[in-house]
Amino acid sequence: MASLNHPGNLKYSKTDEWVRVEGDEAIIGITDYAQDQLGDIVYVELPWESGQEIAFEEKFGDIESVKATSELVSPLSGNVVSANEDLKENPEYINDYPYDKGWMLRIKFSDASQLDALLDVDQYLEYVQGR
């Protein structure tokens, strides 16, 4: 854990997604802990087009590491603004830059109260350590 980075200005889910709020939009990715657990990521499938509706806790994609397949789970409901197309060619961005070039989905969120239910960094780290 010591070498992993979890910024204080993000919200976190128990399924290891992070959320960064920008106005009425939110950017979603997976945490440094999550990418470290997965190991080398080789493929991510984000089948979204702009405007599509996404539900709270809906599966929003699949992520493949060398060893395993995992599902991505949306921590918010709303409408998709864009998905990170660069990850098709550069899935390793998720390992190398989980909070910037490794972002996955930008959505216009529809229920701000869902943000309050997410964990802050201290709660997330406590949650991760308790696993």
């Binding site: 399924t15 657990q37 992520i63 395993a68 397949t69 995992s70 599902e71 991505l72 789970v73």
Partner: peptide
Amino acid sequence: MTEMTTHDS
């Protein structure tokens, strides 16, 4: 994210 195929133990 939920893991589908491997679990740490």
